[in-house]
Every structure is written in C-alpha cells, then in structure tokens.
Design a protein around this nucleic acid. Structure first.
Lengths: 248, 248
DNA sequence: TGGTAAAATTATGTGCACATTACGTCAAGA
DNA sequence: TCTTGACGTAATGTGCACATAATTTTACCA
C-alpha cells in the first residue's frame, strides 16, 4: 500500500475529544456526571483506550476532574472558583485592553472592527449560536492582537473553563456576554486610545458576566450517556466497522 | 495484607514525573534532547507505560514537546517565547502587587515580612540553592496572598517554565532573581500601600530577569540519559527486579 | 424489620504484545 | 564520487488481557 489515510489516527483522537467537548458545550452533561469509559467507548464506537486518552487530556485541560480509582467526572464549579477565574481574567484582560489602547497596528484595528461588525450582524439576525461563538472569540481576539501566543493560550483556557459552566447552566437561552454592545464600546475605547476607559469597561463587562452566571442555578440535566451523545458522533461514519465490536 | 502502601501506585507516577522534572531543573538535559521511552524506563527502573504517562503529562504542562511518531524532546525555548512568558507575568504580577498594596490582612503582612527575612538570611549565608528556591517562592507567595487558587496555579506554571530555562542555561552559578534586595523593596512598597511604586518595581524586576536570561547562551550539556539521571532515582530501589529489562 | 458484613460485579489501572512508522545503512546506477 | 532507492532496525502508538479497587446487592443476624 503506497499511501494510507491514517497517520497515527490522530484524527480519531481529535474526534473523540471533540465529541465529549461538544457534548459538554451543548449542555448535555450535568455537573457531577460520571463519564464511564466502557459506556463512552460503546456509545462513540471507539476503543476504550482512545476514550481514556481523550479523558486524560480533558482532565489536564481542566474540563473534567479525575479521582484516582474512582473515575472521571464533570466538574461542579463552585461560585467561588468561578469568581476566581473571572478575577484572573480581569487582571489579564484589563492589561490587554490597556496595551492595545496605547498602541496597535492598522491590521489589528481592522480585525477588531470586522469582529464587532460580525457580532452586530449576528445580533440583528438573532443567531444565538453564532453570537455565543463570537462573544467568546472576542476576548481571544484581543489577546491575539497583542501578538503574544502564550497569553492567547492562557486566556483561551480560562475562557473555555468559564464559558463551559455557562453553557452547562443554561445552554439554550443564553448570550455569552452580558450585552453585545459591550464589546462594541470596548473596541471603540481601544481604537480611540482611551486606555483607562477601555480597562474600566472591560472590568465592568466581566463583572456583569460573573453576576449573570451566579444568578443562574444549574438545573438538572440528563445523566444518560446514550441520550447525551445522541447526534454527536466521534467520526462521521468514516470507517464502516468500528473496532468497538469486540469478540468476547 | 491489611494495609498496602500502594494506592493505585500514584506515588510511582509522581516519582517518575519528579525525576524527569528534577533532571531538567538541575540542568542535566540539554534543549533538544530526545527522551526515548525504553531508555528512560531502563534507567529509572520502571515500566515503559509509566514513563509514557509521565512524558504525556510533562508535554501537557509545557515542559516537553512531543512530535507524533517521532518522540518527546526537551523544548528549545526561543528568546521570543521567553519574552512572552515574562510579558504575561508582568501583566499578572503588576495587578497582584497593586491589589496587595491596596489592601491586605495582617497575616499576609506577617508572611511577607517573614519571607523577606528568610531571603536575607540565605543571602548572608551565601546559600545559593536556598536562595534560588526562595526567589521563586516569593512570586508564588504574592499570588497566594491574593487568596485566589486559580491565580496561584497559573502563576506557578509560568514561573516554573521560565525558571526551567533559567536553570538549564546556567544551573550552578545563578541567583534566581536579579537582585535579592528587589524583593525587599517590592515588599516594602506593598506594606506601605504604595501601589504604583510596587507595580513599577515589579515591572522593573521582571524586566531585569528577562535581560539577565537573554544574555546567557545555553551551553552544551550531556545528552546521555544514563549520565543525566545519575543520582536521580524514581524510587529508592523499592522494586529489586524492574520489568524494564526486556528479552530482546 | 433494620443494620451490618461479605461476596459478586463492575470499572479503573497497568503490564504486554503487536502493528505501524520513521530513521539509518548499504548498495547500485549514473 | 555523488545521488537515489530499498532494506533492516528501532522506536512509537495502540489494542488487549489481567490485577486491583470500589460499589452494589444480598444474605444473615440482632
């Protein structure tokens, strides 16, 4: 065989990882849910080892929590922990908008304007899913415009962890950020070079988010893995015969 | 057996992880060194799977870099990457000292004073090893005094990554922070409630560190794993017959 | 009838063997 | 002599089976 499409099957790993991540993002998995490896392997149609690797990765990234010899669970974010995450975000993002206000390239300004425009379009169309996505990307975009990859990675991790709990709490009827116009105001302050105002707006924005999240009580979700992963397949029926069908 | 010391052998995992981490911290492993799993397993006297798990964890935490189907390597920190890390640290630590300056408990002031005193003692005794340790802990201590665990974890990760390259570059003859009295000045500004001065001192302190590191060129180290891990054992000859000795 | 203890079952964790892939070496042709 | 191709070796990645630990169920005793 000259060429084979599978190069270490890193795609399969990514698929399993993405499937679990997507299920959490869609609010299918309630906090405290135990993710059993055999059940997940059966539902997703992959081997248990692949599920194990994906779970380990998710644990390392903070999406899940593992208890030795007990299993892997969807974390139950305390109000205190959430407040801490937003506290760190406040430190970083205030510094970010300050720096961008004090100086940025023309290309950065262009990207920022384009993003705000896109958010306005999504708001006008009432496209909640797209707006949710864009709202998160806004904060990552600001980090990216600083040109610091380390900063971007760090902030993205914090953001995913906070929005995760957000989407778990009330997935269907939420806007990721308090007011969509907040982002526009912040961008305007940055582009106008008003560092203090931009930082103040950002701090108020984040404070609004944390109160918004704290107000929502996480309602009970389905804990049945079979139902939780309905429609969320690891791979799009790429391989007809998954090796999940064991001989024993 | 009523009680067994091994509870899932999480201790062994930690030992292997710590051994590799210690070897890096001691500057035994040169940047670019390939960490082969069989060789590591043979040297440390543990199974290959345990080495694999430790390597995966180290990769996730940013200590090592993995290339699919190629192996795991000691990362070669670019000057740019190092600058980025210190940039993020500047953002966080400036906010930290500002917050502490604006208000802190009496217990916090006590811990801070005690640490500065301890550093002075180590400096007077010319105890480089202890001073290196204390210098790193100073920055973690400031994060801890904010009472934010998330912040502490994040900053500790950044600090270990930056000091890692530090110790790799020149392990024997370094002081972790530019001037030991810097910490004393910063602490004094915090205790005096002078937020702007404390932030300014911290920024200058970190800027001094990054220039200090950039000036040192990483000299060539030993790439022989056998020699690199001499004296650094995972477990203290607990298991007499390691299963790392394979038949082939 | 309620509580406790023991056994069975289920799930996690780990060692092992094999498949696949990349790297080094040697030989043949230009 | 240099380049290119193929072959052999070694390391990584993954599926599999067993050992260990925890949970649940059941049975027995108070």
């Amino acid at each position: 065989m000259p060429r084979k499409p599978l190069k270490g099957d890193v795609a399969a790993d990514e698929a399993v990882y993405g499937a679990i991540r997507r299920a959490m993002h869609m609010g299918r998995l309630a906090p405290g849910t135990k993710l059993q490896e055999p059940a997940l392997a059966r539902v997703l149609g992959v081997s248990r080892e692949r599920v194990r690797k994906a779970l380990h990765r998710l644990v390392h990234e903070g999406w899940l929590t593992a208890i030795p010899n007990r299993g892997t669970f969807v974390p139950t974010l305390t109000v205190e922990e959430m407040r801490e995450i937003y506290d760190v975000r406040s430190m970083l993002e205030a510094a970010i908008v300050r720096r961008l206000s004090e100086g940025h390239t023309a290309a950065a300004a262009k990207r920022l304007k384009a993003h705000v425009t896109e958010e306005k379009v999504a708001t006008r169309r009432d496209d909640r899913g797209r707006l949710f996505e864009l709202s998160g990307e806004f904060h990552v975009l600001l980090a990216e415009l600083c040109g610091n990859d380390e900063l971007t990675r760090l902030l993205r991790g914090l953001l995913t962890r906070s929005t995760m709990h957000f989407s778990i709490a009330a997935p269907q009827q939420l806007t990721n950020c308090a007011g969509p116009h907040d982002h526009g105001d912040i961008a305007e302050a940055i582009l106008g070079g008003r560092a203090d105002k931009a930082a103040k707006l950002m701090l108020g924005h984040l404070a609004g988010l944390v109160t918004l999240q704290a107000s929502r009580a996480p309602e009970r979700q389905s804990t049945d893995l079979e139902e939780a992963f309905r429609g969320i397949k690891a791979r799009q029926t790429k391989t007809g015969a998954p090796q999940g069908a064991r001989s024993n």
